[in-house]
Design a binder for these strands. Structure first.
Lengths: 216, 216
DNA sequence: TCAGAATTTAATCATACGGTTAATTAAAAA
DNA sequence: TTTTTAATTAACCGTATGATTAAATTCTGA
């Protein structure tokens, strides 16, 4: 039931390369709607209407709703995961303090506002293929690296020796991630913000809490 | 297409009071399915099949799918929220240490496995009526109380004076809640468990991290 | 004994869904 | 110019959904 007021191009082969534009628009719109309402609650027709294209276009470009969904996930999570992997692999697990990692996580989340709600839905709330993919590709590696780093710092005497490395890793991730996952609530309750001076305050506060809480 | 192997009672007015039993079974089944797959992804027929009743029964008892959903929320979240409110109000904001509150939150979450996924879905991921209800009834009160408590402890010299009370409250909630919200991931990555000795270790670890991280 | 209330069922409604197709248009390539 | 190809559309398919209804059955209370 496409928008009648639509000013789009007409039927027929377009002048330039329209393919990429329409495809990108569909992914963008779908990402927004999936993050807002969840996969099952968003219909193909709603996506098509929001992108101002015919529902059949989803099939033309992605073969199915599921295909569009996978494109959304791939084009949304992959760059972030890749960036983190590169940064982590670059130092081979050394040279980081816990605070560095905390800051890396926080800044990554703050820079990608659509990430937390999408992870919330597709990884934490949904027991689907994305969850296992995320665990395999990201959480397991990051968790392992984090645990190793903590053991290393303990051996070097820079962390309390009685700390459980895995629980400490979990605490770090909790402190970094939860405020973003809970932003809709915390912004109301604590006036939490994820940009500018407030973000710096948050990093400073959390970094210090973590440092003092884990110091020997 | 109800279960043909069903051994249930036949049509007609039952001997005892069946009403409460069927109603409770529907709420129980719906709560499980909603927590597992989300509201939109669970059909009336799926609920009816799992509860081994005719789909029309949902309408008979709850008028609509939405009515069933509201009953689930009311009968699931309300008692917990109420209990927490009572416990918090009982001391009027005094007499608690931060660790006490942490432990209260953690034990409440650990004792109600269906709570985290439901809050995750209906409060954090969904921008619906449940979110504002939750904020009004619980988060705002709890957050305010927590912030006041922290200021009080600072004034008494038991907490670092330069701590931002609201950020500290956020940290406490993060440390307590995230491991449960992320349990599907953390159980794989960090071997997190929410019962027995592991729970005690978690409380001890997190409590100490919080104490040392906020001590003057 | 029997009228009525309570409970459940099968069947059905209109609607919306994901998905598909053939036709149409117009640019690009031959 | 003719043919091919990319892009888009309207219309349609079968299915599943939430919702409704009338009938059936059985207990309860007068």
């Amino acid at each position: 039931m496409a928008n009648p007021a639509r000013t789009s191009r007409t039927v027929g082969r377009p002048a330039g390369a329209v393919r990429a534009a329409v495809r990108a628009r569909l992914v963008e719109v779908a990402r927004r709607l999936f993050a807002e309402r969840g996969y099952a609650a968003v219909s193909l027709r709603a996506i098509a209407a929001a992108a101002e294209v015919n529902p059949a276009m989803v099939h033309y470009y992605f073969a199915s709703k599921r295909g569009l969904y996978e494109a959304v996930i791939a084009e949304t999570l992959s760059p972030v995961v890749e960036r983190l992997n590169v940064m982590l692999a670059a130092r081979g697990g050394g040279g980081f303090t816990l605070r560095d990692l905390l800051e890396l996580y926080v800044r990554t989340l703050a820079a990608s506002p659509w990430l937390p709600p999408l992870i919330l839905r597709e990884v934490l709330a949904e027991d689907g293929p994305i969850r296992s993919w995320f665990i395999r590709q990201f959480a397991a590696r990051g968790g392992g690296l984090l645990t190793r780093l903590i053991r290393h710092e303990q051996a070097a005497g820079r962390l309390r020796p009685d700390l459980d490395p895995r629980l400490t890793a979990l605490s770090l991730v909790s402190l970094a991630a939860f405020p973003f996952a809970a932003l809709p609530v915390t912004s109301t309750v604590f006036g939490m913000r994820t940009c500018g001076r407030r973000l710096e305050q948050f990093i400073a506060h959390t970094g210090r809490l973590l440092r003092e809480g884990t110091a020997p």
